[in-house]
Simulated assay, not measured.
Amino acid sequence: MTEKKILGILAIVFGGVGLAFSWVPFINNMAFILGIVGVVLGVIAIITNLKSKKTLALIGTVISILSLIIVLTTQNLYSNQLNKAFSGDSTPNSQKESSEKATNKSVSNSNDPSKNTWTFKHDVFSAGIMTYKFTKSEVRDSIENGKKTLVIYADVTNNTDSEQDPSNIYTVMHAFQKTDTANKNLIPGMVKYDENSNNPIQQYTDALNDKLLGKKTTSVALVYSLENNNPVTVKFDNADFTKIGEKQYDVK
């Protein structure tokens, strides 16, 4: 009997799209849903074609299952990488060993900041080894003609004894602004230079990208390129990319 192809083709389409985006952070959450739909359609197609060919149904099912596997694998990988970025493991092993020998460590790691629960409360984002206290915000002209930027200032503290990278916050802090058709994920921007060809917040953006010494605090600035004058919602994730808080900024 001839294979009934519609469900098999749909399974291939959903599975294929899911597979294409299965490796992309955040977007692969949607890819996971597409993969599930593809598997369901593929299984139904197989059942429908029990007494006929099942080529397309099997292909769609296999592709969809593969997309689910890749999503789960990559999300675990990204989560581990993020945990590593926000942990105290950035110090070379040799340096760690020599430091431990020099201090003759015998105490437990009960005070290890990387074990702390991530929270966002009262404008303070506690991200394990790093703490960001948001102090103020402002709207400035963008380096792109006719556009504006949202500048968010914060005092960041390194809770460890090792150097850390404050800019890792961009992986767990995301700004959104609604347009006529979508809730846009804003990208990092750059402030327009002044009449002396200087960037007025350069010292703060430099501090964000510099390695922060252990137990030190510095002032930084995060810059997002705006789409319009609508309010901006900033969402904060933990190391598992689960939202733990949000804050809204008026940019008018």
Rank of each mutant, 00 (worst) to 15 (best):
N28L: 02
N199G: 01
K243I: 13
A11T: 08
F120P: 02
D240S: 11
N199I: 01
A207I: 10
N116R: 05
Q177V: 02
D89W: 09
M1A: 09
S98G: 05
W23I: 07
N198E: 15
Y170N: 06
K192I: 01
K235C: 03
Q81A: 13
M1H: 07
Y170E: 09
S137Y: 05
H122S: 15
T103K: 14
A85P: 01
N109P: 04
I152E: 10
A207N: 15
I44Q: 07
E246C: 03
D161W: 00
L7H: 09
H174W: 06
I70S: 07
A182V: 11
S225V: 01
N104W: 06
N111T: 12
V151T: 12
K121C: 02
K192W: 04
F125E: 10
P231A: 00
I27A: 05
L77W: 13
E97Q: 14
I187K: 15
S67N: 09
E246N: 12
V234Q: 02
E3T: 07
A182I: 08
F236E: 04
N158R: 00
K148D: 12
V40P: 13
E246G: 06
S114Y: 04
L208D: 09
M30A: 10
L82K: 08
S197Y: 11
A239I: 09
N49K: 03
D240W: 00
Q248T: 12
S225R: 09
K136Q: 07
L212N: 03
G189S: 08
V24T: 03
Y78Q: 14
N199H: 04
D194Y: 00
R140C: 01
V156D: 06
